[in-house]
């Protein structure tokens, strides 16, 4: 590891830590913007029936009587101790809920990315193979639809179509993890990851097309052709290999879309992932749950971005020199 690389690793990590702190501050104060206090927010009309002593006990439990900065730092200290709060409705610590939910969303994201690459890269390459011809037009139309069809519309339509016409509705049963029942799990994951994968295949089609078109015109491709390398070999070994760099970058950038889209898709297909956990928290006004879960999601997003960035610097010498 060169000195430049090392210092940039330190700089990037410090930046990510500062961002994480800012994220914690932002999440904390955003959820303090709720009208009323957390007690009436989470108990609703039941709050009116509380005795003064019960109310006081809840005030102390939530730490509402403390100044905001004290509340913030005690929340932060609890987080570091692994205490993300307690969900009253689920009667479980938020940490346990989160540990159970994260793998579901992670599996969904990985499958969605794989499907997006399977759909997007071939269509992008076909598009680029005959610019402005019929197949390019079809490829661009597919990517336009991927950008324009809302995930919730596609999910609702697919769910109804498969359930009614094909009698296929694996998500109607309880969720099974990959280890409990691999076959049911894969069936349950298929439609949700297809919906998310179709959404992110659009930018992948566009990136693949643009990258292939650009690389195709470069000198080393002409040299390869002149040497008599077979067309197919040029397509895959020379063009696709080089196009992979922007494709992988674009795929990495889609993580945010995936984590957000997961909220919608998990809700529709009843997958107990992290997105559904936030949404349930919001619907049931469990703001302690929302606060910690949103922070966990944002933190994983920051860490993923940092790792991609560092990996990039290690791989690509041009970025390293910057």
């Amino acid at each position: 590891m060169t000195a430049i690389l090392r210092s940039s690793v330190i700089r990037k990590t410090a930046g990510a830590l500062a961002t994480l702190f800012g994220v914690a501050v932002f999440v904390f104060f955003m959820l303090r913007a709720i009208p009323g206090d957390q007690i009436s927010a989470s108990l609703g009309t039941e709050a009116a029936g509380l005795t003064e002593a019960q109310r006081q006990a809840l005030v102390e439990y939530y730490g509402i009587d403390e100044p905001l900065t004290t509340q913030f730092f005690s929340w932060l200290a609890n987080l570091f101790a692994g205490d993300l709060g307690f969900s009253v409705r689920a009667q479980q610590p938020v940490l346990d809920l989160t540990v159970a939910a994260l793998p579901v969303t992670f599996q969904l994201a990985v499958f969605a990315i794989l499907l997006a690459l399977i759909i997007g890269v071939p269509i992008g390459m076909l598009s680029a193979s005959a610019p402005r011809k019929a197949r390019d037009f079809v490829g661009q139309a597919v990517s336009l639809l991927g950008l324009s069809i809302p995930a919730f519309l596609l999910a609702t339509t697919l769910l109804t179509f498969f359930a009614v016409n094909l009698g296929f509705n694996p998500n109607g049963l309880g969720y099974k993890t990959l280890f409990e029942d691999p076959s049911v799990n894969l069936q349950q994951m298929f439609l949700p990851s297809l919906v998310l994968g179709f959404g992110i295949s659009a930018p992948i089609i566009r990136t693949t097309r643009a990258a292939v078109l650009e690389i195709r015109g470069q000198d080393f491709i002409r040299t390869a052709r002149a040497k008599g390398v077979k067309t197919q070999r040029i397509q895959f070994r020379h063009i696709l290999r080089n196009a992979l760099i922007p494709i992988v970058t674009m795929t990495g950038l889609q993580f945010g879309y995936l984590l957000g889209g997961a909220v919608v898709v998990e809700q529709i297909f009843s997958l107990p992932g992290i997105g559904r956990q936030v949404l349930l928290g919001i619907q049931q006004k469990e703001y302690a749950l929302v606060q910690s879960t949103v922070l966990v999601i944002a933190a994983s997003f920051v860490v993923i971005n940092l790792l991609t960035d560092l990996l990039y610097r290690a791989i690509d010498p041009r970025v390293r020199a910057e």
Partner: peptide, 8 residues
């Protein structure tokens, strides 16, 4: 602000 998935 960039640290949050947009829809979330």
């Amino acid at each position: 602000l960039f640290a949050f998935p947009p829809l979330l």
